[in-house]
Design a protein around this nucleic acid. Structure first.
Lengths: 103, 103
DNA sequence: AATATATTTGTCTCAATTAGTACAAGTACA
DNA sequence: TGTACTTGTACTAATTGAGACAAATATATT
């Protein structure tokens, strides 16, 4: 899903893959794969992409992480349940803010 | 969190780590680390543990995955947001059941 | 206190997987 | 034909997994 977003953003800016590739110092094949979620984006590149595409890095990062999470659960029957467990924990942490008991 | 659960279950059965270790053909140090979430449990072991501890494998698996997800997200500011993105996707998939458009 | 049993900690190793590319060759389309 | 994009394959480096082993600590038991 990050890949698709990157592609949309790139096209919205009227850029061609070759341009993006040049900015990142990689070849266009790599960019192509990234846009099709065939290869992960390195976090370092994420920063440059945010700049180049004038889009908040934080939002790209959200998708970047979401991709990884999704990869992990997509073929799992109990994936959604696991997600909910984690969500509950994170929300708890959010409340208790300061305290830090291990989960 | 899986580790803690395993420990509770083991103790509930009145078993000692040495016993569990023997069943899995590993040493007790390894079991200790697993129970303290210092080492991941292999999925293969999960099956045996479910049997040995008389606990549904599916529930252990849910925690197993949740652990991995949590590891991925715990130090990320946007973790919760990412989780929610994935959750939304999974729920969508659940509805559309059959259809299979890429995300 | 002394000993035994259970658990934890530290460090190491080997194998397997994933990340991060490159390159060459293919397809699509203008 | 060019230009853009995709696909397939390959390679190295870094990370993670799955343990072993030895030594340290706790916790009972005598």
């Amino acid at each position: 899903m990050l890949g698709l977003k990157l592609k949309e953003l790139r096209e919205a800016q009227g850029l061609v893959q070759r341009k993006v590739a040049a900015e990142l110092h990689v070849d266009t094949a790599y960019v192509s794969k990234v846009e099709r979620d065939e290869k992960p984006v390195s976090r370092n590149h994420l920063k440059k992409l945010a700049e180049l595409l004038s889009y908040p890095e934080e939002e790209l990062l959200t998708l970047w992480i979401a991709d990884k999470l999704y990869d992990m659960v997509k073929q799992e029957a109990v994936g959604l349940k696991s997600i909910e467990v984690v969500q509950a924990i994170l929300k708890m942490k959010l409340d208790n803010g300061q305290s830090n008991q291990p989960v």
